[in-house]
Each structure stands twice: as structure tokens, then as C-alpha cells.
Design a protein around this nucleic acid. Structure first.
Lengths: 97, 97
DNA sequence: TCAATATTTCATATATTCTCGAAAAATGGA
DNA sequence: TCCATTTTTCGAGAATATATGAAATATTGA
């Protein structure tokens, strides 16, 4: 993963609403969760959630698919793994424990 | 690690200058590096670097000690490990691979 | 087609972040 | 003490991020 992508990912997760949304999606697993339900659970307005999900999408941390009237969002584990790998490799070298 | 601390850490690392500074400090190891040398290597002005280091310090990702006229900064591996643990536990549950 | 549901887009106002120049503070040596 | 070196503080301005109400879009079923 390149530095630019890593910063996009870190930045996307560095926000209360977005981190909470991402964690709910992690719990939801591959099945994902509808935007509306995410908004209800997080108690944020729909358009606010859309903004949050858009940023997570641009960082490639989540992906959307339409199902009827709902839009289901799901975590992109691949990206999250790559981000963790980047942090481990670039930010922990020299760490003994 | 609490969510608040995790967001502070993610936010601190989600910036070109700060991430670059942190990576240099990781390479420097426990011996750390003087603020001035960091500024030279990163080609940023001293006050800009101070701002970056202050944010990393507040996130407890680095720690400063004075040595003569210089101020030596060093990574706090404990915090970085805790941040990685937080991300793995809270953001990767359900990931099979 | 019409209405209901679900989500997004848009414009905007506020807040925060970022970088900078200039000045101030801390330290060591002549 | 005086000066050079190193780092930080301060204040300002530009840029970016954030959340919102209102309107628009997409989908389904009557």
C-alpha cells in the first residue's frame, strides 16, 4: 500500500461517525448493512451518514451495492488488512515487543 | 485503548508531514532524533515541524527529551502497539484472512 | 401514473486544520 | 554578559472538514 492510500485510510477512520459506522459494518460481516439502518443505529441524519460512507468508500474501506430501495454497505477487508500491514511495516520497525 | 485515543492516534498519523516524521523516528529507534534534523530531512520549516510533533505528542505517539540545545523526539512504541491492537480488534473481527 | 420508502446531491454555514513569518524562549560557549 | 544555535509560541490567513435543511433521484408496489 502506498503512503497516499494509507493516509486516506487513516484519515477516513479518524472520525467518530466514520469509525463507528465502520465498526458496525465489521460486525455485520460480508452481508453488510443498509445505509438506513446504519443511520438509525448511529443516530445520525441520512445525509450525514452518506457523507461518512462516501469518504470511507473513497478510501476503499467499504463498498456499496444496491438491493431494492436500500443500499447495502460492506467492509472491504482487503483494504483494511493492507492498511494494518502498512502500519506494521512502516511504523513499527525497531519495536522489540 | 479507548475510541477517543484511537481517533487521536489515527488523526495524528493521517497527515503527510506527521506520518513522514513518525516513520523517521521509527527508523531512528529508541535513540530518537533531534527536531532540527527531522526538519532538515523532511524539508519543512522548524515551526511547522514543531506543530506536527506537538500533535504526535498529544496522541502520545512520541515523547520529547531535551539534550543541550536540541530536543530529541522518540517513538512511544507502547502507544503504537495499542493503536494497532485497537484496529485489529475493533475493525477486523469477522475477517477470515 | 401516483405515492411511499430509501438514499443521495446540493448549497451553505460553521468549525477545524494547516502552514507560515516573526518574535520569543532555552541552552551553551566565548 | 553577549552571541549563536535550537526550538517553541504566537497570530493570521488560506484551505479543508463537518453537519445540516431542502430538494432531487432511485426503487417498489398499488
Amino acid at each position: 500500500m502506498e503512503t497516499k492510500s494509507a493516509i486516506a485510510g487513516l484519515s477516513a477512520l479518524a472520525n467518530d461517525t466514520r469509525l463507528a459506522a465502520f465498526r458496525l459494518l465489521v460486525q455485520a460481516g460480508p452481508a453488510g448493512m443498509a445505509a438506513g439502518e446504519l443511520a438509525r443505529r448511529l443516530a445520525v441524519r441520512p445525509n450525514t451518514l452518506t457523507a461518512a460512507l462516501t469518504i470511507l468508500s473513497h478510501a476503499d474501506l467499504v463498498v456499496a451495492r444496491r438491493a431494492g430501495r436500500s443500499v447495502i454497505y460492506a467492509v472491504r477487508y482487503e483494504t483494511m488488512r493492507a492498511l494494518l500491514a502498512f502500519m506494521t511495516e512502516n511504523c513499527c520497525a525497531g519495536s522489540s515487543a
